[in-house]
Design a protein around this nucleic acid. Sequence first.
RNA 1: GGAGAAUUAGCUCAGCUGGUUCAGAGCAUCUGCCUUACAAGCAGAGGGUCACUGGUUCGAAUCCAGUAUUCUCCACCA
Length: 871
Amino acid sequence: MSIAKTYNPKEAEEKWYSYWMENGFFRSTPDEREPYTIVMPPPNVTGVLHMGHMLNNTIQDVLIRRARMQGKNACWVPGTDHASIATEAKVVAMLKEQGIDKKSITREEFLKYAWEWKEKYGGIILKQLEKLGASCDWDRTKFTMDPDLSEAVIDTFIKFYKEGYIYRGVRMVNWDPQGKTALSDEEVIRKEVNQKLYYIRYQIKDSDEYVTIATTRPETIMADTAICINPNDTRYSHLQGRTALVPLINREIPIITDEYVEMEFGTGCLKVTPAHDLNDYELGQKHNLEVIDILDDDGTLNEKAQILVGEDRFIARKKVAKMLEEAGQIDKIEDYKSQVGFSERTDAAIEPKLSMQWFCKMDQLAKPALEYVEDGTIKLIPEKFFASYKHWMENVKDWCISRQLWWGQRIPAWYNDRNEWVVAKTEAEAVAEFESLGKSTNGIRQEDDVLDTWFSSGLWPMSVFDGVRHPDNAEFNYYYPTNDLVTAPEILFFWVARMIIMGHDYTQKPPFRNVYLTGIVRDKLGRKMSKSLGNSPDPIELMEQYGTDGVRVGMLLSSPAGNDLMFDVSYCEQGRNFANKIWNAFRLVKGWETVDQPATDAQKTAATWFENRFNQAVADIDEHFANYRLSDALMSTYKLIWDDFCAWYLELVKPAYQAPIETETLETVKTFFEKVLALAHPFMPFLTEELWHDELFGAREKGDCAIVATYPITQPFDEQIIKEFEVVQQVISEVRSIRNTKGISPKVALPLAINATVIDFKKYQESIIKLANIAELTFVSEKVHGAVSFLAGKDECYVALESNIDVAAEKERITKEIAYLKGFLASVEKKLSNERFVQNAKPEIVQNEQNKKADAEAKIAILEESLRSLG
RNA sequence: GGAGAAUUAGCUCAGCUGGUUCAGAGCAUCUGCCUUACAAGCAGAGGGUCACUGGUUCGAAUCCAGUAUUCUCCACCA
């Protein structure tokens, strides 16, 4: 029976994914085996698969599949994140398209829309992961707003509150005027922006004098409550204690002094606007200044501004500047570059805003989380991220955890009509709490505050096993701490640090042992792949085009941990080609007729070599996995299969055209084939499963699948055998090379004579004849004259050509080689004659140099002899 | 403004605590092959002052210092 000439991934992919699913191979329940657990970083519920997910989840799948094959109880928990602000923004936009304003509907109505939307569009990404071959335990799929997970979030809030980590207060926060919510520091992205620096004159009261200040934000002058100068600044000493007038509105403000003001910057005078700048706020606190907040939640000016009420801050900026100019109160305007914060999600310019919010105290919580990484309990891979992790942990500020949104877990705080409040899980408990405090419960209500998404995702490794609500449950105890976390470095602080903090606070254990930080997927030009740039290929299309296995291989081929991946479709092509190579190797074996015979000696020799080489490769691969060097592990697998298995082993045992193969050898080949399929399975699950079930291997028992095949275990191997065969390979290559350079067709069989003094070539006689196409192989003990010669190791080989050899060319070639060896020898001798080297270097190094010397001398002697014999 | 990282073949990257894994791999390139598993292939070949300048050392791609270029993270100076 013949099979297709090229591998057709599509069919295999559909067939085997549903087969795995139906037979429960992805499912995990606690048992006596060692668990191996990964919780998937939950993609946003609104997300669609992009190249970053592709990389991330391929890595996780490779790890989980390998662990499963190693006999561990592998559990990969998938899920999605409600992504509070990002999702709410999308729902708001959707409603807007339908002509519905968020303000016009109630919270309950909005949430109804949001849930509908989530049901409709949410989780597309999980479906897409199936195409990738992700072997998640889908029965465990979680969503961060599932009732049990939400309850865990509320419980945690209350616990942290009781432990004193959570407090409520008025602080300067990052305000997103578009999302109309507070943000944490981590959600603010700073970008350099070209701005104008306006030099504005403030008149001194009862005088014709002016003081000039420099600001980038003239629209905030109406909120000024002081002018500040450095007390040491003699230029302005005469102004101390005077009063200035805010331009346009002529409000009186004091002139104060503080060393905070840099004399060199601008004019050395600072306008103090406590409501709209963090530093000014602190200055205001210090000097007891009034706080005038002239901005509404949406970034428009309110009535306190007195002028331009209702205008957006950026329009107001221009208008104020114009009005000042007309009033002659602008000295000059300079171009100026400065850092401005933008909302990570809405990209709106952040407004520092004084606001009542909930905060989580971080300093104490952060300490054990830092220790875990410091003492190696948790390993960051690659380690280079430790420095910034440490820096963040040591400088972490309190975390603003409340968001003025609807989509998320509502903060369990209850207020009465006097705005007194208690923290309680239910209204009933709140009532009881109020009463026990002797406070009114009139008008009891909750505010429209929800918790930061990262507060809930921080619990993810615990909450997916219900470990927050029921820490004693068997599943949690079995699977937690999880093993590996695979995620992007961007969210090291957002997410990883907080999981460690929360995990420790609950369990006194780390939530995972290893954090594998993947790189960013970039295009060939080094640009980050993004939708807006349009430089990202559609992963689904890629999989259609190159096959899922091909794309998986392509992704991994050049992505060492933590390094960015310069993605190019040619990698997928390489992956596809590799899949095809395996497919065709299989076709070869499948096509053989058999004869009931034992293996020949040559076949046995080949099998011995390959077995040792295989074990060597397994050892390599194991080591690469231990170091999380997946691309190296893949490359070792790739070379083992392509070069050693296909190009050498199969060629060695391959019977002549239409000749049958010995049954014993076929069995050996099949055994090896299964082993290499097992090695390749984590990388190429579909192809390997497809071949695994081919009738070539006979009928498989139920459950005998590549997905649960035994992953090869490191076995001892004989390096000598491998090295010896390398010399044999060298002989074969040299003969081929001679053909190539002399323009002799590969079909022409050549005679070969070997003066074997080191290697037992007799053992490989047949192999050499076969692969180098040798007409006659003789063993000689003396130099063969008139033949092309070459050295394989230290044994000389001769190929007698029919035509006379080109003596001049041979001489030149040999002379060149001698020259090279002599140069090499000279450098070795120089070393050895250096007393300080002999004295200082380790004995084995010196011995090595001596070996090199003897080696080179022996080779030179042989070559010089050859040269002489050429006349 | 601070911190970290990178710079090795045309491209993407290995190269651990200095010395036979020391100048490597894959891809690409070139030459020859439609050899009956595979042209998505086979065989062979070429290709690098290890960014630059110094230093340490018997010995440096490897350690140190400086320079250049690039990247990332962190940081509230109007």
